[in-house]
C-alpha cells in the first residue's frame, strides 16, 4: 500500500504531500503521523501542501484532525505552501481551516515552529532545519 513519507529532523517531522491523495491515503497519513509523533518524541509537524492542486472538505478536515491530534500529543502543526487558487476555493467552500496554523512557505513555517518551541532547543537542530529547507522551497516554487 502506498504511503506519504514522513521525514524526521530533530524534534520536527516534515511531510510533503506530492500526490493527489485518495481518502484512504489521507487517513493513513493521519495515523502514521500520530504514531511518529510519539515514537520520535516530535514537538512539531510541518506539512507542505504546495503540490496539491485541490483541497476539498475531506482533505481540509484531515488537516484539521492532524493539527488537533498533534496538539493532544504536545506537538505543534503548521501547514505551508497553499496555492492561492486553493485558498480562494476553500474559503468559498466554507472551510477556513479553523485550528490549523498556516504559513506561506517552508521557511516561514519553520520560523513559526522554532519560535513556538521556544529557545530550549540547541543550535544543532536549527542548523539541520535550515539545511533541509531550501530543497523543499524549490518544490514549493515549481
Amino acid at each position: 500500500m502506498d504511503r506519504i513519507p514522513i521525514l524526521k529532523m530533530g524534534e520536527y517531522l516534515l511531510v510533503t504531500v506530492q500526490v493527489d491523495m485518495h481518502d484512504r491515503l489521507a487517513m493513513t497519513l493521519q495515523e502514521d503521523l500520530a504514531e511518529r509523533i510519539v515514537k520520535a518524541r516530535a514537538r512539531a509537524v510541518l506539512i507542505d501542501i504546495s503540490a496539491l492542486e485541490v483541497v476539498d472538505s475531506f482533505i481540509g478536515r484531515m488537516l484539521g484532525s492532524i493539527a488537533a491530534i498533534a496538539r493532544v500529543l504536545d506537538a505543534e502543526t503548521v501547514v505551508v505552501g497553499m496555492r492561492p487558487a486553493v485558498a480562494i476555493t476553500l474559503v468559498e467552500l466554507g472551510l477556513a481551516l479553523p485550528g490549523v496554523r498556516t504559513a506561506l512557505n517552508v521557511e516561514k513555517g519553520m520560523e513559526i515552529l522554532r519560535r513556538s518551541l521556544g529557545q530550549s532547543e540547541g543550535n544543532g537542530n536549527g542548523a539541520a532545519a535550515e539545511a533541509v529547507a531550501p530543497p523543499s522551497e524549490a518544490d514549493a516554487e515549481r
Partner: peptide, 17 residues
C-alpha cells in the same frame, strides 16, 4: 482560468463523495 478550474474540480470532489 486557474481559479475556475480549482473551483469546479473541488465541487466535483465534494459531489463525487
Amino acid at each position: 482560468g486557474l481559479v475556475d478550474q480549482t473551483k469546479i474540480v473541488t465541487a466535483a470532489s465534494e459531489l463525487a463523495r
